[in-house]
Design a protein around this nucleic acid. Sequence first.
DNA 1: TAGATTGTTAATCGATTAACAATC
DNA 2: TAGATTGTTAATCGATTAACAATC
Lengths: 223, 223
Amino acid sequence: MPKTTYMPAPTPTVRRFPEYLDVLRRALLRDREFISGTRIANELKLEPIQVRKDLAVVGVAGRPGVGFPVRELVEALMDFLGWNNGTDAFLIGAGSLAAALAGFHGFKQHGLNIVAAFDVDPAKVGGQLKGKEVFSMNHLVELTQRMHVHIGVLTVPDAAAQEATDQMLKAGIRAIWNFTSVKLNVPPQIIVENVQLASSFAVLSSRLVQALQQNPRQDGVEQ
Amino acid sequence: MPKTTYMPAPTPTVRRFPEYLDVLRRALLRDREFISGTRIANELKLEPIQVRKDLAVVGVAGRPGVGFPVRELVEALMDFLGWNNGTDAFLIGAGSLAAALAGFHGFKQHGLNIVAAFDVDPAKVGGQLKGKEVFSMNHLVELTQRMHVHIGVLTVPDAAAQEATDQMLKAGIRAIWNFTSVKLNVPPQIIVENVQLASSFAVLSSRLVQALQQNPRQDGVEQ
DNA sequence: TAGATTGTTAATCGATTAACAATC
DNA sequence: TAGATTGTTAATCGATTAACAATC
């Protein structure tokens, strides 16, 4: 495994990497050795130049007139994202969102391995969540250190978010995938990525408002 | 209700609107009549100038030296997003992610009202999902038209995504909140907003890789 | 060779940030 | 009045897109 070090890439570029991986994996299934930036762009409705610029980040050389070596590109992208060796993560909160995440098989492709869940509710502790054991929050410090887990997936109710975060910090968690809508207070070296469902829905809503203003009735769809 | 029409705003601005709403609602609870852009910026770790620029979109005038009228601003933002009168939506797919969304009370604040779920699984049809009835996909056309629902929240497995989308289109759904990782094929007038969990996790992962490269041991956290 | 595609350098575009007069 | 803040106009920054020589 050639463990290259990469420069940090622009966030929009990183956000497109999983899409590229999808396309590349499908190409692999079809036994394609090379794929052009043009083709990738077509499948994802992007511009070819953008694909080339993005892929340049991971340093896999393409062949003019031919395209990029698929397998190498998959390797490099996975490497860049640290998805190659499977990263263990804890679910913090064992509610229904946690259950959905625990049961999501697609994470395997993203090198995400959810190993356990934690909750304060005694009714949940000791039970299972989609096959993952649910521990008491009291054991978080101990288990984090024993299992060397770096990532916490935060799915507790908003009201409990900061408290749970503080416990993760004490346990030595380094990165938090935050599904609450709370702006977490953490020291600068801790990585927080917020999944803002509300932001996503806001974009949808505002576009729908605009569309309904211009065309309130259903039409344009073949019937 | 003064139903103003607004110009479309930049997407990054729209994505911040729910955050502003959060801060403003908390200010309302504290009985504050006015709030300055500076204060909003502080709470959200943004630049004051960005807050002012963003808020300018909804056309609520602030008072120099004082700030913006909180209640008016909440109204205007809700209005802009179409969140004022509650929008009905269908869940397409009744799996565990659908369950999580159906049980999420925060949507009330976003004017999102999930009224029913649909699934192809006969074992689920006729049952309930967090108090919402589960119907057969065969009834989607009929119920969409009867209830004038415009929004579909797509939570089916990737393999079923396009098929389910086609049925939504036939039923007259105008906007799709897409939780699958499939790039949906839809006519241009249909609004699709993709919740790309993989993209979000990619950003987290790549930052963690960088951080671990620079500092592999736990430190910097007070113990 | 002709056609397709890469990768570099430069141009454009859009969003963020700065500066500052006007105003409460 | 002094201090804080708005809202406008201009500057900066970063990402996307264009142009094109090099190459398979």
